[in-house]
Amino acid sequence: MKLISWNIDSLNAALTGTSKRAGETRETLKKIAAAQPDVFAIQETKLRKDPTKKHRDALAKLFPGYNYVWRSSEEPARKSYAGTMYLYKDSYHPKVTYPTIDAPSTMDREGRIITLEFPDFYVTEVYTPNSGSGLKRLTDRQGWDTQYRQYLSKLTKDKPVMISGDFNVAHEPIDLAHPSNNHHSAGYTDEEREDFTKLLKAGFTDSFRKLYPDKTGVYSWWAQRVITSKQNNSGWRLDYWLVSDRIADKIQQSKVVDTGKRRDHAPVELVIDL
């Protein structure tokens, strides 16, 4: 089974935009479509509500033979913010849920989680809240991490889980290019890293580190506003495929998909024998 996950940073821009970056994003979408994943998870769709006819037509053209479901941010949360989507081959018929986890603030209304239930396993995606400039949202982020860990722990007791998304944390020094310069930056605080450790200890495996425990220089995000970030590979690994420990031995591949010169997030791919 092949699964791909990507923080796309605006589905509307990706499908209808005319900028150079929109073109680069569409090229990556074409690359993903050509890979024929069984499941494709998308974060940060930024849809105002539902996909428009233009969006639907573009998705049908890019991904024929796929069904899709989505979740957009809704009041009292900000509109056109966060949001998630799944595309999956139409030969599958998963049960779709849109969980709330009793998260702080408006986080439960920001469209951050979708879960697909298959007969023998779950696939779920997350767009984890960022702790923000000046770490203003760090306390709420910690509350989210606790509630989300409890949610996943319940899932994995029922059947194995594959979890993907932008977790907004680089777990270990090996997961970013300049750890010493970012110790108190959002995404690399002691609190965020410890919460990710707690998540793994709750019964989950980082698929990439399972296969490549010591591999350096592999990142999934490069600052969009820093022109040289990709050129210098000054990146962070913020995007993951985690799996329940009991299916970790079935992982066949876990990698970052090349996006060429495009900065920001790159897709991550998991191949697993289920």
Rank of each mutant, 00 (worst) to 15 (best):
D175E: 07
P119K: 03
S105N: 10
Q150T: 12
A103E: 07
A177G: 09
D102K: 14
G187K: 07
T156A: 14
K198R: 11
I113T: 13
A170W: 03
P129M: 03
E125K: 00
K159T: 01
G134R: 00
M107G: 07
D102F: 07
K198Q: 15
D206A: 13
M107W: 11
S105G: 00
P119Q: 07
E117I: 02
G134V: 05
K198S: 14
S164H: 00
Y98N: 05
G132L: 12
V169R: 10
D206H: 05
T146P: 00
L87D: 07
H183Y: 14
G187M: 08
F208P: 00
D108E: 12
Q150P: 00
N168S: 03
A103R: 05
P104M: 09
F208M: 00
S91A: 14
S153A: 15
K89E: 08
T115P: 00
T106G: 04
P119R: 03
P94N: 09
A103G: 13
L135H: 06
I101A: 07
F121C: 12
N181H: 10
D195G: 01
S185F: 11
K136G: 08
F204C: 02
H178S: 14
A177E: 07
V123A: 11
G165E: 03
S133V: 03
T197L: 01
R137Q: 14
S131H: 01
F196G: 08
R209H: 10
R193G: 11
S133P: 02
G203E: 11
V96C: 02
K201M: 12
K136A: 14
H183W: 07
E191D: 12
I174L: 14
T100K: 15
S185N: 14
D140V: 09
Q142T: 09
K136F: 02
A170G: 04
Q147L: 02
K95D: 03
S91G: 04
K157V: 04
L152N: 00
L138W: 10
E191V: 11
E191C: 02
P160W: 03
Y98W: 10
V161E: 01
V96I: 15
I101T: 02
L176S: 06
A177T: 08
S185E: 13
T197G: 00
R109G: 11
S153K: 07
S133T: 15
K198M: 11
T100W: 08
R109Q: 15
L116D: 10
P94S: 12
Y127T: 00
A177M: 12
E110M: 14
A103M: 09
T189F: 08
G165I: 02
L200T: 09
P94I: 03
T189C: 04
M107L: 15
Y148T: 04
P119C: 05
L135S: 06
D120W: 06
D90K: 15
E125C: 04
K198A: 05
A186G: 08
N182R: 00
L176F: 15
T124K: 10
Y122W: 09
D140Q: 15
S131E: 04
L199H: 05
V169E: 02
K159G: 02
S91M: 13
H183A: 14
N181D: 15
L87S: 00
P179L: 03
T146R: 12
